[in-house]
Computed example of a mutant assay.
Amino acid sequence: MLARLIAARLPESQGDPYVLVPVPLHRNRLWQRGYNQAGLLAQELARLGHGSVCVDGLVRTRATPSLGGLGRKARTRALSGAIAVKASRLPCIQGRSVVLVDDVLTSGATSTACVAALKRSGAASVRIACFSRVLDEALDT
């Protein structure tokens, strides 16, 4: 249901289909949780015809603390240098229109780090598709 709601707002790609890249979890967190919610959303968006999934296009190069309860600046510090494009997935990213998929966008720190990594690696454009957005008023700065 969440992917269908995101899909309803996702504009049609101009040219090549989108590459759907989920926000990554660190391997320890993925192992603990057993799934990546952003990855599941990306896979469903692909099934609905909105592009192809590059499920491991981004990686967390180091574990980051849980960002819950952290303000905007602390989130940005925690994510500094923690997200990169997986070298073997560069051909999926370079020159392509990418949709970064996440469930919740809180402060934007994770999305900003992901977008920066994708752009540094040659993505032609990056859009963010998420189900929910936390209002700035709800965050400590």
Rank of each mutant, 00 (worst) to 15 (best):
L58Q: 00
V98P: 02
A84W: 03
V115F: 01
C92I: 05
T110S: 02
K86E: 13
K73P: 12
V134F: 10
P91L: 08
A109E: 02
G122M: 12
S80R: 14
C130W: 00
G108Q: 03
S107T: 15
G71Q: 03
H50A: 00
G49K: 04
V53K: 00
V55H: 09
P65R: 15
G95L: 06
R133K: 15
S132Y: 09
A123M: 01
C114I: 07
Q94V: 14
E137V: 12
A109Y: 05
A109W: 13
G95F: 02
T64F: 04
A117F: 03
L79N: 06
C130H: 08
C92S: 10
A138E: 15
R62D: 03
P65Y: 08
L105G: 06
D102S: 09
R89I: 06
S66I: 15
T112K: 13
R127V: 13
G95I: 05
C114G: 11
C92V: 10
L135V: 14
S125Q: 10
G49C: 01
L139T: 10
V99N: 04
S88I: 14
A129Y: 08
D136E: 12
G81L: 10
G71K: 08
G81D: 08
R72L: 07
A84N: 10
L100C: 06
A78Q: 09
T112I: 04
F131D: 00
D136C: 02
A129T: 07
G51P: 11
G68M: 14
V134Q: 04
T112Y: 07
R89Q: 15
A129H: 07
L135P: 15
G49S: 02
S97T: 10
V85S: 00
H50M: 02
H50I: 02
I93V: 14
L105P: 04
L135G: 09
L100Y: 04
G57Q: 03
A138G: 08
R120Q: 13
S66G: 15
G108N: 05
A84K: 09
A116N: 11
D136T: 13
S121M: 01
D140N: 13
F131G: 14
R120P: 02
E137Q: 10
A63I: 04
V98M: 00
G49I: 04
V104G: 11
L139H: 15
D56E: 11
K119M: 13
V104L: 11
L118F: 06
L105K: 13
I93W: 01
G69L: 12
K86W: 14
S125I: 14
C54Q: 08
T64K: 04
R75A: 10
V134N: 05
V85W: 00
C92F: 09
G108I: 02
S125P: 12
R77V: 07
V53Y: 00
R75T: 05
R72G: 03
G68A: 12
G51R: 01
D140M: 15
L105E: 07
